[in-house]
Design a protein around this nucleic acid. Structure first.
Lengths: 139, 139
DNA sequence: GCTTGACCTCAAGTTCACTTGAACTCGTAA
DNA sequence: TTACGAGTTCAAGTGAACTTGAGGTCAAGC
C-alpha cells in the first residue's frame, strides 16, 4: 500500500479534499511528505480519520478531538471524559426519544390541534424547562 | 396576564433578549404590538417558544422549525412530515446509542490502547462508514 | 508541444445562530 | 431635574467548520 495522496484519501473516506487540507491546517492530521507539490499521507491516516469521524459523531468539536491525541499521534483519551460524553449522549438520547414519540403521537393524534393534546403539551413543557435550565450543549 | 415585554419573556424562558429579537427578525415569532417603543408579546409566545425549543432539542434548524408553522401560527399538521422526522430521529437515536455504548466501553476497556480493542475497532469502522455514505445531518 | 486533470497556496466567502456595540428613547425614582 | 435601567435600531462581529475562487505547478496522454 503506497502512501495515498489527498485524492485517494478523499475517495476512501468520503471527505472533501478541502476538508483534509483544512484538517491539516488546524493540525488535526499531518501529511507524511510530498511528492513534488502533492501531499502524501501515511496509511495510518485512515485510522486517524476514523477516530475523528467517531468523535464528530459523538458530538465533539474538532478542537476537543485534537486535544484527545497525544503528540505521538496516539489517542490519549481521558476515561472520565469518555464517561461524561457518554452521559451527555444519554441525556440527548432521552430527549430525542421523547421528541420522536411526541412527533409520532402528533402525527396520529385526533385532537383538533396538537396544542390541545395533553401528550404534546407534556412534551412542550419538558422542552421549555430544558431550555430554561442550562444550555444543552447541543448545537 | 398582561402582555409580557421582551424582558419578561426572557426571564420566563431563559432566552436572551437578543435571541428573541433575532427570532422576530427571521420571522420565527411575532410581537403583538408596542407600548411606546417596547415590544409586547402575546402570552401565546410561551407556547410558541416551547415549540421552538422542542424543535431545537430534536436537532432541527431554525429554518426547518419555521417551516413547521402555518401562517396562522399554528403548528402545521403535515402528518407525513411528522412521521418522516420521527423516522429520521429513530435512525439518529440508533447511531447515538451505538456511540454511547462504544464510549462507555472504551472508558472501561482494559486493552493497552483503544486501537487494539475489537469493540473500539468496530466502532471506528462504523463511524467511518457513516462518514462515507452520506452526511449525517447532525452538526 | 499542448492540453487536461489533479494537485497546490492563500485569501476570502458561506452558513448558522446568535452576540455586541454605538447611539438613541422612554418611564420611573431620588 | 437628573440619572437609571430597560428597552429600541442597525450594522458589524463571532466561531465553528468548511468551501470557493483565482492563479499556479506538474505528470501523463494525445
Amino acid at each position: 500500500m503506497k502512501d495515498p495522496d489527498i485524492g485517494a484519501v478523499a475517495r476512501e473516506t468520503g471527505l472533501a479534499t478541502s476538508t483534509l487540507r483544512y484538517y491539516e491546517e488546524i493540525g488535526l492530521i499531518t501529511s507524511s511528505g510530498r511528492k513534488g507539490l502533492r501531499r502524501l499521507f501515511d496509511p495510518g491516516i485512515y485510522e486517524r480519520l476514523a477516530l475523528i469521524s467517531l468523535g464528530r459523531n459523538a458530538g465533539f468539536s474538532l478542537k476537543e478531538i485534537g486535544a484527545m491525541f497525544a503528540q505521538d499521534g496516539n489517542p490519549r483519551i481521558d476515561r472520565a471524559q469518555l464517561h461524561d460524553k457518554a452521559d451527555e449522549l444519554d441525556r440527548l438520547i432521552r430527549r430525542l426519544r421523547a421528541m420522536r414519540d411526541g412527533l409520532r403521537h402528533a402525527a396520529e393524534c385526533p385532537a383538533p390541534s396538537h396544542l390541545e393534546c395533553p401528550t404534546f403539551q407534556r412534551l412542550l413543557k419538558a422542552a421549555s424547562a430544558d431550555a430554561k435550565r442550562g444550555k444543552s450543549k447541543r448545537k
